[in-house]
Design a protein around this nucleic acid. Structure first.
Length: 540
DNA sequence: AAGCCTAGCGCC
DNA sequence: AGGGCGCTAGGCTT
């Protein structure tokens, strides 16, 4: 059963499958949703990120939805048209308004109301080559949007005091606004003294390069990887300065002031924010929380953080995508890389890991390239699958994930470059540029199929965890186990201590179920490592 | 002053 | 000459 939510001048219309319409004044919307939720409908609305937070603020949770905006982005991607950017019942803007709009708005579809969009999306899904998979994708994407809003609403438990303490330990006490922490001052002074070439503007990479060169060091950049190779007494304090400076600027006291309130970090997750279907975040850097500060993520008293991580998710995804039985066998245990070593394909776990990552990213150098032929011999289907995706991208073709998300077509400039290289009279440099661009796009499509399908698995996992934790009528989210964090292949549930065992079971069961949802029957297993801890940093 | 770009580094 | 991101600071342009 569906209920389409349509904002109208006189209130919010709730439209059933049979067309029955209830018009609810805006102030009564949350109460109306709460009442109808008892029927377990799937709410069909334009944008979960717009509709759901006010409901959560009013204490109303929604179990299922269909997010028209997110699903439109998926369908538009498949069709190769731009995603719709405006929603509602607004009439199409006059042509004169858009005629000279060069930012691309002209090829975007006009605003559309929810009921018509819903009708069109159902038709589009039904007409798709694999409606069942696309339906799963729409449901998983939408469930993710609900989870994202709930996680932002509830927040990640965060101890400002612990964060301040670890900053003080690393950097010295909090400095006055605009001042550099004492520890950074010391390190900068040391670097200057040890280089011995006068003042060193340590925060400016171009100036720092000049200073290093004046000191006789042959460097082109200030990247840590390049500096590490140098043998000079100033390098150690310089590298330490960079690490600590990063902590201070990215996740220091200013970050703490801005992002942590009332013991919670509330980032904005952006479902579908990445072209592959991964989530992005907006503000707070939620998906890049450095390990350095994870000690500040602390469960409430009487609660635990149940941290779950899908073990070697991407190579397992590749094994399932490609139907590689040998790689499935290698992944029978919790450590797929160890399984690859045991199969005799490569000599060490590190080689297995670097080789598989290289295969999925398109690495062409170093150890990764060295072990690739061995992996290809042992796992021809898996390696062949990503190679085929790369070749397709190099030809300018689009590729799709397991559930049907489609990669964008290469740009017009890319196609022109390929055409120019093949044209009569084309010079050698045009050919090189074209091949380089082709290989680059091939690396993107190569990775797209794996990263995108892994994102689908993760959405299915998250949705399964959320559904299992769902207990209708059991009170507000914050009184029972609930999701508080997600990073691509990792989930954190904040749980009362006496329900931790149950939550661990839920996380494992949902992982098994996610494999079935995305791949059907597959010999590939998707184990998760689970740890119940007080502090995030204690997991792993 | 604001906007855009790059370098660099954090995460997966 | 290895995929996807977000964020900050510096430095440039407008």
């Amino acid at each position: 059963m569906h209920i389409v939510v349509d904002r109208r001048p006189e209130g919010v219309a709730l439209i059933d499958d049979d067309g029955a319409t209830a018009l609810v004044p805006e102030p009564q919307f949350a109460a109306a949703v709460a009442e109808r939720e008892a029927e377990h409908p799937r709410w069909v609305w334009t944008d979960t990120a717009q509709w759901y937070p006010p409901l959560l603020a009013a204490g109303v949770r929604v179990e299922r939805c269909h997010d028209l905006r997110l699903v439109d982005a998926i369908i538009a991607g498949i069709a190769g048209r731009p995603a719709r950017r405006s929603w509602g019942s607004a009439p199409e803007p006059a042509r004169a308004d858009t005629l000279f709009d060069l930012d691309g708005a002209t090829d975007a579809a006009p605003a559309i109301a929810a009921p018509l969009a819903w009708q069109q999306q159902r038709a589009a899904i039904a007409a798709h080559a694999d409606p069942a998979r696309l339906t799963l994708l729409a449901a998983a994407e939408s469930a993710g949007a609900l989870a994202a809003a709930e996680m932002q609403h509830t927040g990640l438990p965060w101890s400002a005091a612990a964060h301040d303490a670890l900053l003080a330990e690393a950097l010295g006490p909090r400095p006055a606004p605009g001042r550099r922490p004492a520890r950074l001052d010391e390190l900068a002074t040391q670097v200057e003294a040890l280089l011995g070439v006068g003042p060193v503007p340590i925060d400016s990479p171009p100036e720092l390069v000049k200073a290093l060169r004046r000191a006789g060091l042959d460097v082109a950049t200030t990247r840590s990887a390049e500096l590490t190779r140098l043998d000079h007494p100033a390098i150690a304090p310089l590298l330490q300065y960079k690490t600590l400076s990063r902590l201070h600027t990215a996740n220091g006291w200013n970050w703490l002031d801005e992002w942590v309130h009332d013991g919670r970090f509330r980032p904005t997750f952006v479902p579908g924010g990445v072209v592959t279907g991964r989530w992005a975040s907006d503000g707070g850097g939620a998906l890049q929380l450095p390990k350095q500060v994870r000690g500040a993520v602390q469960a409430d008293a009487g609660w635990a953080l149940v941290v779950a991580d899908a073990a070697q998710l991407e190579p397992r995804i590749l094994a399932a995508l490609s139907g590689d039985a040998a790689m499935a066998r290698a992944g029978a245990g919790v450590d797929l890389y160890a399984g690859i070593v045991a199969s005799g394909a490569v000599a060490s776990r590190e080689h297995a890991k670097v080789g598989m990552l290289g295969a999925m990213y398109g690495g062409t150098t170093g150890v990764s390239a060295q072990v690739l032929p061995r992996l290809a011999r042992s796992f021809p289907q898996a390696i062949g699958y990503v190679e085929a995706a790369a070749r397709a991208g190099e030809r300018g073709e689009r590729v799709t994930t397991r559930l049907g998300r489609t990669s964008p077509a290469p740009s017009a400039a890319w196609r022109e470059r390929q055409g120019a290289a093949g044209a009569e009279g084309a010079d050698e440099s045009a050919g090189r540029a074209a091949r380089s661009a082709a290989r680059s796009w091939g690396r993107f499509t190569r990775n797209f199929v794996v990263q995108g399908t892994a994102a689908e698995w993760a959405l299915a996992w998250m949705a399964g965890v959320r559904r299992r934790l769902w207990t209708t009528g059991a009170g507000p989210l914050a009184t029972q186990p609930h999701l508080v964090f997600f990073v691509h292949d990792e989930l954190i549930v904040h749980s009362p201590l006496d329900r931790v065992a149950e939550v661990e079971q839920v996380l494992r069961e949902a992982a098994v179920e996610a494999g079935r949802i995305v791949f059907g029957a597959t010999p590939v297993s998707f184990p998760v490592t689970v740890a119940a801890v007080q502090r995030y940093s204690d997991a792993k």
